[in-house]
Design a protein around this nucleic acid. Sequence first.
DNA 1: GAGGAATATTCCTTTATCGGTATATTCTTT
DNA 2: AAAGAATATACCGATAAAGGAATATTCCTC
Lengths: 111, 111
Amino acid sequence: MDLVTLYKCLGDPTRLRILNLLREGSLCVCQLQEALDESQVKMSKHLGYMKKRGLLVSERIANWNYYKINPVAHPMLKANMKALGSFAAKDDELASDLKRLREVKSQADCS
Amino acid sequence: MDLVTLYKCLGDPTRLRILNLLREGSLCVCQLQEALDESQVKMSKHLGYMKKRGLLVSERIANWNYYKINPVAHPMLKANMKALGSFAAKDDELASDLKRLREVKSQADCS
DNA sequence: GAGGAATATTCCTTTATCGGTATATTCTTT
DNA sequence: AAAGAATATACCGATAAAGGAATATTCCTC
């Protein structure tokens, strides 16, 4: 995966919000959808976009598709994800996304 | 300047090549143009794109317009520029861009 | 195998991006 | 003021992105 592709993936607000949540580990589409309060299509498309470019990997378990950051993705991704963490603390939207994710997770499991 | 905008700026091959050279400090359009062997319009447009978004600042001196990285740009930019440095050492194109820049600089001054 | 849930894909429209050609602007020099 | 150099802008065409609506796929359960 080349650097330009990596930055293109990062250069979209929805994808940044998704990646912010994926710092927490593997998540399925509906969890992301709920936490970000966005449409299913939008989620699926952005996840597909990043997977296609090697940023994410997915694993299907029953009806659910779990996405996570590709552990062998570009090293620059890890650095930016880490920086995103400290940025998220100061950013209202990213912070409340995380908060909502925790609520979503604490509710009934996807299964 | 927001994070998404920053990443959009980084998500283009020509702009990454420009930024790689601007790590060396302030450069005028014709120096960049020569070092990257690209058209004047292309250079000017990408520089304008980044300036408009707060990534670069410029200073006109006589006929020449010198661009440099905005010292007060997003902190994430600095981190990525630094990382770009180590990446450039391994990347053929970025490395030869730097080489050519040094040739350009060693030649007659712009003035 | 029929129905339902989770997800992906197709089609469409709108908007952004990129690069080129041609032209304009700005500044310097004569 | 005219010419030339360095740079910017306007306009155009091609391509990519982004999101919505509708539909398809996949897998589970009954």
